[in-house]
Every structure is written in structure tokens, then in C-alpha cells.
């Protein structure tokens, strides 16, 4: 328990230091743009693949489960849409991103710590927590909601591709389902989740890398911890946000 509070305190201190005034805005902007490219463009394919397949599987699965029941067929489109918007796109995408982006960040910063790059910057007078952490968090908060929105679209598209051409559902039924019972507030929930998860997965991963000690084994552990703790934080946050925003 003491270890947990010790880590949590150090995590808060890192965040406070990370959000201090930059030495030079231009350098931070360049770093943020680089991170936006890495997170946004670099993760697009994996997020797209996961989204299309989860959307496709969801529609086939629901078509199977609702077969022969009194529930109208067009509900499949409705279920796939809301599943993608409320849960699958923000949560599943961010769990995947924790694996890709989070482990990458922990390894990058941890490697810099081990090769004394961070010490070199500190000696120069650079606020390393700010320069290495803040641009990553800002870039993630900008790019991950965009990825999540794309993921929702691609998930629905995946559902369409898996059900309409295979005649599980007609085009008209799927579209009718998509247009039924639409609640714009759900999109708001999706973006809230995306922003919170983006903050959690980047800050936790950066923390794991920033305080790494030892050699390559510890760096590997830090990278694994980044994914594990980010995933746990995302799932906990998912539950809390769902309760708060839907009650």
C-alpha cells in the first residue's frame, strides 16, 4: 500500500513538473507535432483493423443471437452503432493504443534515462519532465479522440460490410437501425472517454519510462508495466465515466 502511494505521489509530482512553462515554445511545438504524427498516423492502421473486425464480428454475432427472436432485424444496425460509439471505439481502441503507443513511450523515455540523455538535458537546464512528457500528453489528447471517432465510423462500416453483402441483413434494415434512437449525448460520452483514456495511457506510460532504473530487463518491465497499468486505469475510468455520465 505504501508503495502504491509512493508511486502515486511521484506520478503527481511528475505531472506538476510536466505542466510548467516551456523554455521555448517552438521546441515544444516541434516535439508535439512529431508525437502527433507518431500517435495519429502511426496508430491509424492498427486501430482501423481492430475497429473494422470488431464491428464486423459484432454485427454477425448479433444477427446470430437475434435470429428467430421477436426483436426487429434493423436493431442490429442500432446495436452496432451504439456499441461502437459508447464502448468499443473509445475503450477497445485505447486498450490497443496502450499496447502500441504506451509501451513505445515507456521504452523511448526509459531508453533515454538509461543512456543518460535525460541527465544530459537536465545539465543543459532543460525541464525534462516538461519537454519529454507534456508534448506526448498534448499530442495524445488531440489525436486519440480523432482516432476514436474514425474507429467508430470504421466499426460501423465493418458491421455493414459483414452483414449486408452476406445478406444477414438488408441495406435498408442496417441503415434504418443506424438512424434509429440516435442520442447525440452518446457521442459526447465517447469523446470524454477518449480524452480521459488518452491522458491516462500517456501519463502512466511516460511515468514508467521516466523513472526506470537498472538495465534492459528493467526497461522491458517498465514497458510491460506501462501497458498493464494503463489498461487497468482505462478499465477503471471506463466504469467511473459510465456511471457518472449515464446516471
Amino acid at each position: 500500500m505504501f508503495t502504491f502511494f509512493s508511486h502515486f505521489g511521484r506520478y503527481l509530482i511528475m505531472l506538476r513538473t510536466a505542466f510548467s512553462k516551456p523554455e521555448k515554445w517552438r521546441m515544444y511545438w516541434i516535439e508535439t507535432a512529431r508525437q502527433m504524427n507518431d500517435i495519429g498516423i502511426g496508430s491509424f492502421i492498427i486501430v482501423a483493423l481492430v475497429s473494422v473486425f470488431v464491428g464486423a464480428v459484432a454485427s454477425v454475432q448479433f444477427a446470430y443471437q437475434l435470429n428467430g427472436q421477436l426483436v426487429p432485424r434493423y436493431y442490429i444496425g442500432y446495436i452496432v452503432r451504439d456499441l461502437c460509439i459508447i464502448e468499443m471505439s473509445p475503450t477497445v481502441s485505447c486498450l490497443v493504443l496502450a499496447g502500441k503507443v504506451g509501451s513505445n513511450m515507456a521504452a523511448e523515455i526509459g531508453g533515454m534515462r538509461q543512456k543518460e540523455h535525460i541527465d544530459a538535458m537536465e545539465v543543459m537546464g532543460v525541464n525534462t519532465a516538461a519537454y519529454l512528457v507534456m508534448p506526448k500528453i498534448v499530442a495524445a489528447i488531440v489525436m486519440i479522440p480523432m482516432l476514436v471517432a474514425l474507429s467508430a465510423f470504421l466499426g460501423i462500416l465493418g458491421g455493414y460490410i459483414a452483414s449486408v453483402p452476406t445478406e444477414l441483413l438488408s441495406h435498408g434494415d442496417f441503415v434504418r437501425g443506424l438512424r434509429s434512437f440516435f442520442v447525440p449525448y452518446n457521442v459526447f460520452i465517447m469523446f470524454v472517454k477518449a480524452i480521459v483514456y488518452a491522458f491516462l495511457l500517456t501519463s502512466i506510460s511516460c511515468y514508467q519510462g521516466y523513472y526506470v532504473k537498472g538495465g534492459s530487463v528493467e526497461l522491458g518491465q517498465a514497458s510491460t508495466n506501462a501497458v498493464v497499468f494503463s489498461d487497468i486505469a482505462i478499465l477503471l475510468a471506463d466504469y467511473i465515466i459510465t456511471i457518472v455520465l449515464t446516471s
Partner: peptide, 23 residues
Amino acid sequence: GKEELRAVRMKVGMLFQGSALFD
């Protein structure tokens, strides 16, 4: 303090054992 420390550190150069060049 933080700002004064930064001001002093800008007058400091350091050569690290492993050079610590950004790869």
C-alpha cells in the same frame, strides 16, 4: 530555486561517459 538553477545550468557543459548523444 527552479529558475535560478536553470540560469546556472546554462553556464554548465558536461561530457558524459557514454557521450549521451541523442541517437
